[in-house]
Design a protein around this nucleic acid. Structure first.
Lengths: 124, 124
DNA sequence: CTCTTTTATCGTAATTTTACGATATAAGGG
DNA sequence: CCCTTATATCGTAAAATTACGATAAAAGAG
């Protein structure tokens, strides 16, 4: 079970990494731009921001390392697009984790392996 | 349309705020704990972490201000639970934004108001 | 009223993130 | 080969985040 726990926490780490990457206004905007235009070279993305090229390149690196975008070298430029598999995975994770705590009657135990010893509805 | 644009960017700011709040391992774990136990007082959450009480209190504040959890004063303690409406809203936003860039043929224009002047599939 | 329990907030130090300019690399045109 | 274009990376400064201990406030027990 250690491997499963490790795998779970690796997935969780990846999920948190993605959430953190998206939790920045500039990077979120870059994702929107890429979603709208499907593909952009770095300079085009730079043009949509008030930031320096090097700063945007850094943000692109964060998004790339989080598995949210892909970059393909195209001549002297790099062509970026959304990492569809990564975003799908993220969406699946969000759907898997978050609804479980919001769907009324279903016990929330599935949200974690640990067993809760509290009866529901104590306060709040 | 200014109000709509403002409202949209306010919603976006809220969404980014939520993503940022979740994009921290400790805070993500707190959400998991609350989902599993449904309600916790601060001290119980502190006990699940290696951190000082004041630090956890700070993280709870971030989650609260992001609209992800609710705190209700209960005697000398504060009882926390997940803000179901907030989490539902987050999930709706994620479903609304992210899938649009991943569902194959559908044009991605709906992802943003701006009009793209690029034909799809130039690279990547 | 005094003491205990439980929190939130304040002040502060350490770490991380964010941003910039400068620079090195890579590709292609002339 | 030289020049332009496009990018990533490096070094560094400023800002934000994260963490801690100390402290103040609030509620209840004795």
């Amino acid at each position: 079970m250690v491997e499963r726990a490790l795998a779970a926490s690796e997935a969780e780490a990846r999920l948190v990494r993605m959430l953190k990457a998206l939790g920045n206004p500039i990077r979120f905007q870059i994702m929107k731009t890429l979603a709208e235009r499907r593909t952009c070279i770095t300079q085009e993305i730079v043009a949509t921001t008030p930031l320096a090229q090097s700063t945007v390149s850094q943000h692109l690196k964060v998004l790339r390392e989080a598995g949210l975008i892909e970059g393909e070298i195209s001549g002297p430029a790099t062509c970026y697009c959304i990492d569809v598999r990564g975003v799908r995975w993220l969406k699946d994770q969000i759907e898997q984790w978050l609804p479980e705590c919001c769907t009324s009657d279903v016990p929330w135990g599935a949200f974690s392996e640990q067993e809760s010893q509290r009866q529901p509805g104590r306060c709040c």
